[in-house]
């Protein structure tokens, strides 16, 4: 009866700060950033993006406890940028990658839509309407070699 609401795993409480920055007192240009109500999905992606940036000397993340919905990410830079600024830049870069990927997906999906309506009808404009007119088990949308996945 005193169980916390399940949505507290991913929704910020009233007035809760999403980010908490703890600068490292013993290592120069380093900070530990606690990101609340997020998990490996964001943590690992940020870590990987940070490591690919030249200003970074160290980046690592951990989820201290699986039942606590937050992770911490430790960043050390070479001094040309603050850890916060680098993290922000990493986020911006990732958003850029994602929006370019989004456009590419859109284009690919639009090609497939055209093929679907012209072709055998497996792939259709099912996207707007999950109950799109096509029947189940159509053999359209074949693999590149013209084979169906059932062939092997």
């Amino acid at each position: 009866m005193n169980a916390p609401n399940r949505y507290e795993l991913y929704v910020l409480d009233d007035g809760e700060k999403p980010v908490e920055i703890i600068e490292d007192t013993k290592i120069p240009n380093a900070a530990t950033i606690k990101i609340v109500k997020q998990d490996h999905t964001l943590g690992n992606m940020l870590r990987a993006q940070l490591l690919s940036m030249p200003q970074i000397l160290f980046a690592g993340y951990k989820v201290p406890h699986p039942l606590h919905p937050h992770f911490i990410i430790k960043i050390q830079t070479d001094g040309t940028m603050t850890p916060q600024a680098v993290l922000e830049q990493a986020c911006t870069k990732l958003i850029g990658t994602m929006s370019s990927l989004e456009n590419k997906f859109k284009r690919e999906f639009s090609f497939k839509d055209v093929e679907g309506t012209v072709g055998a009808g497996g792939a259709t404009a099912a996207t707007d309407d999950p109950y799109g007119g096509s029947g189940m088990g159509g053999t359209g949308g074949a693999w590149p070699g013209g084979r169906d996945y059932l062939d092997f």
């Binding site: 990987a48 690919s52 997906f105 690919e108 839509d113 949308g141 996945y149």
Partner: peptide
């Protein structure tokens, strides 16, 4: 990780069904 940055991410849809 390094090395992908110079290349744009691409996607190819091989199959789309309902």
């Amino acid at each position: 990780m390094q090395g992908h940055d110079d290349l744009e991410p691409t996607v190819h849809i091989r199959e789309l069904k309902k």
